[in-house]
């Protein structure tokens, strides 16, 4: 009897230990992989940082033929397109999230949720091809019209300047906006759904309209989570490669004009790697990868921080 019990106990322990070992291995692996990636790109890019120094980040020119490697125009392009994407995607995503959780009847909710999730599974190269074949040519007259409206207006006239082609910062931003909408939508939806029904009912009972209930109870409750969702979307938009590469125009430029062609970090890496034969150029491209890695890390850390703080505050209040 005692023997059997011991046997059972040790069996349990084996299962316990195996499980523990597996989880630890999983945790260590991911840290190891991330560490190895960081170490590899850091060591492979050291040549570029040694030869270019800080001017790698401040130099606008990218001229491999004359050994000038500057990342500034690409950093600019990445930031601008990601910002356009977020500005366009946030209202739409929040609209969908609020509609499906607060407004839509349940028979309509399900297909809309399914549709938004379906957008997330479309491969990014499909978005890129759609952008290059369909969207970009159709946007040229739109850009020209918009730029005509703002012609001569002080600041807006420069932002919406003359458009020469369909592949621009704005086109890339639009495509990226479509791509990050499902992410922002589904996370916002999850966050909004955690809003206690008592809060909503309380607001309605106090005579609030639906709009007042949403702004007063739902959005204040889920603000932190929504900000986190937006930042995750921002990170995704910054790292997106092929869709942006196909529609951004591949002409490194720093300009206020959103209707001009530009280039971004991931796109130049993808397009130039195949023919990067010199060590200097390879190293410069890897250094751009490192730059992008750090940029997305910062955004993701910021997102985590904001979300955590919001959650703490929520717990403290309730």
């Amino acid at each position: 009897m005692a023997l059997a019990l011991d046997d059972l106990k040790s069996k349990k322990q084996i299962a316990d230990r195996t499980f523990r070992g597996m989880t630890i291995a999983g945790g260590v692996t991911i840290v190891l992989i991330l560490g190895l990636i960081a170490w590899t790109i850091a060591s492979k890019s050291s040549l570029a940082f040694r030869t270019e120094g800080l001017s790698f980040f401040t130099e606008r020119r990218w001229a491999p033929a004359s050994n000038v490697y500057g990342a500034l125009s690409f950093i600019f392009g990445t930031s601008v397109t990601a910002l356009i994407a977020v500005v366009l995607a946030v209202p739409v995503s929040l609209g969908i999230a609020l509609f499906t959780t607060q407004v839509a009847p349940s028979w309509l909710k399900r297909p809309i949720v399914a549709m938004t999730d379906l957008v997330a599974v479309v491969p990014s190269v499909v978005f890129g091809l759609w952008g290059i074949i369909f969207l970009a040519p159709k946007l040229v007259p739109v850009f020209t019209t918009v730029s005509g409206w703002f012609h001569g207006v002080p600041i807006l006239g420069r932002i919406f300047g003359p458009a020469s082609a369909g592949r621009t910062f704005m086109t890339a931003g639009l495509i990226l906006a479509i791509m990050i909408t499902p992410i922002i939508t589904s996370i916002s939806r999850e966050v909004i759904e955690t809003c206690p029904p008592t809060d909503r009912d309380g607001a309605l009972a106090l005579g609030a309209t639906r709009w007042e209930m949403i702004t007063g109870a739902v959005l204040t409750h889920s603000a932190g989570g929504i900000v986190g969702a937006v930042m995750l979307g921002l990170g995704r938009a910054m790292g997106e490669t092929i869709a942006a590469a196909l529609v951004i125009g591949s002409s490194p430029a720093i300009t206020a004009n959103l209707f001009s062609s530009g280039d971004s970090l991931p796109s130049v890496i993808a397009f130039e790697w195949g023919e990067a034969t010199s060590d200097a150029k390879r190293s410069a491209l890897i250094a751009m990868g490192l730059t992008l890695f750090v940029m997305t890390l910062i955004v993701n850390f910021a997102a985590t921080y904001v979300v955590n703080r919001a959650m703490k505050r929520m717990r403290g209040e309730s």
Binding site: G249, S251, S261
Partner: peptide
């Protein structure tokens, strides 16, 4: 394999 094309060319 890449040169510094002037802005305004289409890629």
């Amino acid at each position: 394999s890449t040169v510094e094309w002037p802005a305004g060319t289409q890629a």
